[in-house]
């Protein structure tokens, strides 16, 4: 343990308003803690005052409407993974949820935490990009909505201001019928950080790609929705040519190399396109 916990404070408010008061006073939100507690262990948690969100039941749960499915930011991956509704309508998210650490991690790790932690390798992110998710963000001032593909702006930079919390994630219902794929490539079979991941889904009509969404993890400073690739493939006849990969900007780090990430990203796309044909 590289930190002195007696120097940190944590409060666990019962209601959203109280939590928002804390957050607007500079208290750092803490949901499942599976990212923040690891930072604490490593002596790298800079914020000394934390607002625990765990008791905010109003930010938890899965609501199904005709047009949209709404997921509370505090929903844990264990619930997303086992929910039949998610499995049927948001299968890529269900698959990703099943791969976010082991069972014990999935029992604490939250969807909102995964997005707000803003790791380029966050595994829930590509699926949400593919599903055109919209974030509902709350603060004492009120509520606003941000399309998720506009949320990330740079490495650990996002459209989340001081005093704001991610409250809910809205997703369209009915995407379960698209042909999709989720593939996570990591340092071992399970319980490992992603080196490159792909979420993609397409609606195929009469041998052509009518609609398509593509998102990659860990190939750019943040989870990447690939608009140019999508544009190149929209309307393409199957079997489709590989689209351009110039949106990807992978790096070398101690987990992998840029070369590998790019090559595997292409291979994953090739496999996905082949599966559509």
């Amino acid at each position: 343990m590289r930190a002195n916990v007696s120097r940190y404070d944590l409060r666990a408010p019962d209601g959203l308003t109280e939590a928002l008061h804390l957050v607007s006073n500079g208290w750092k939100p803490l949901a499942g803690g599976t990212d923040l507690m690891v930072l604490l262990e490593a002596g790298k948690l800079a914020e000394r005052r934390l607002a625990g969100l765990w008791k905010l039941d109003e930010l938890r749960g899965i609501e199904v409407g005709d047009e949209t499915i709404t997921l509370g930011a505090l929903t844990i991956f264990a619930e997303l993974r086992h929910s039949p509704v998610v499995g049927l309508n948001l299968p890529l998210l269900a698959s990703a949820a099943a791969e976010i650490g082991g069972v014990a991690n999935q029992n604490r790790a939250t969807l909102g935490g995964n997005l707000a932690n803003a790791s380029p390798a966050a595994d829930a992110a590509p699926a949400l990009l593919v599903y055109d998710a919209e974030l509902e963000i709350v603060s004492l001032e009120g509520t606003r909505r941000v399309p998720y593909h506009q949320f990330h702006r740079g490495y650990k930079e996002m459209d989340l201001r001081a005093g704001e919390l991610i409250a809910r994630i809205h997703l369209p219902n009915g995407r379960g019928r698209w042909q999709g794929c989720w593939r996570k490539v990591a340092t071992r079979a399970a319980q490992a950080i992603t080196k490159v991941s792909l979420a993609a889904a397409a609606r195929v009509e009469e041998g052509r790609i009518a609609e398509i969404r593509i998102a990659y993890g860990a190939v750019a400073p943040y989870p990447l929705r690939c608009h140019r690739m999508e544009a190149a493939l929209r309307g393409a006849a199957l079997p489709a040519q590989l689209p351009p990969f110039d949106e990807l900007a992978p790096i070398d780090d101690f987990r992998s190399t840029a070369r590998y990430r790019l090559k595997v990203a292409r291979n994953l796309m090739e496999t996905f396109l082949a599966s559509l044909a």
């Binding site: 944590l10 666990a12 803690g33 262990e41 625990g52 765990w54 014990a104 029992n107 604490r108």
Partner: peptide
């Protein structure tokens, strides 16, 4: 539920 106790804050 199974949890990793090294990542659960006491207050929670």
């Amino acid at each position: 539920k199974l949890v990793v106790s090294c990542l659960v804050p006491a207050l929670e």
